[in-house]
């Protein structure tokens, strides 16, 4: 496949901009809409997503190619990936709680949310479909996470400004947020010609 020949850097930047998982694949929407009221919490959630996305793409890569493929269990990948993500998040939560209560304060309340973030599962599934190598998968995971954080940070900033804006009543809250997300997706389409993966 020619995609496997794509360089790690290209995949990384593509994941951040042209193939932003949130704004081109519309994955991870629920936490994007719910936690983007302020830049501060957006940042916390964004950092947690970067970390979990990068680590679980590597973990799931190993689980997929060294456990599921040899035993011909690839059709179970959805459930297995979710279990791996959930267990990993739990473990990380315990470690952070122990090692750095301060970091736990910043990330702690967001980590459980991420377990059910579809963007994480999406990255793991895309890397299989696109037949990435381990390094490419990790780059894709990290890039996807950073792209997701950029999007939620932008949304957090916009929504913070929006507090003072006169918004028609029926559009307050999720309504206007979805409209903004749509506009942001249009803006991100401007990147689309630059690099092409997929």
């Amino acid at each position: 496949m020619e995609q496997t020949a794509l360089s790690v850097t290209v995949i990384f930047f593509a994941a951040v901009f042209t193939n932003n998982i949130l704004l081109t694949n519309f994955l991870g929407m629920c936490s994007f809409l719910a936690i983007s009221r302020e830049v501060k919490s957006s940042l916390g959630l964004g950092l947690a997503v970067i970390f979990v996305m990068t680590s679980t793409s590597a973990l799931n890569y190993i689980v997929y190619y060294y456990l599921l493929v040899p035993f011909e269990l690839v059709h179970f990948r959805y459930i297995v990936f979710i279990i791996v993500i959930a267990a990993f998040v739990q473990l990380i939560e315990m470690i952070i709680d122990r090692v750095s209560p301060r970091l736990y304060v910043i990330l702690g309340i967001f980590l459980p949310l991420i377990t059910v973030n579809c963007a994480i599962l999406g990255v793991c599934l895309f890397m299989i479909i696109r037949q990435y190598s381990l390094m490419q998968s990790v780059a894709y995971g990290a890039g996807g996470g950073i792209g997701w954080m950029l999007a939620i940070l932008a949304m957090g900033g916009i929504r913070q400004k929006l507090k003072a804006a006169p918004i028609p009543r029926p559009l307050e809250g999720p309504g206007i947020t979805l409209i903004i997300a749509g506009l942001m997706a249009l803006a991100f389409m401007g990147f689309s010609g630059m690099i092409q993966i997929q």
Partner: peptide, 12 residues
Amino acid sequence: GIVVLSAFAAVL
């Protein structure tokens, strides 16, 4: 399949 998946979940 069942054994491998169960073992995997149990290990986790």
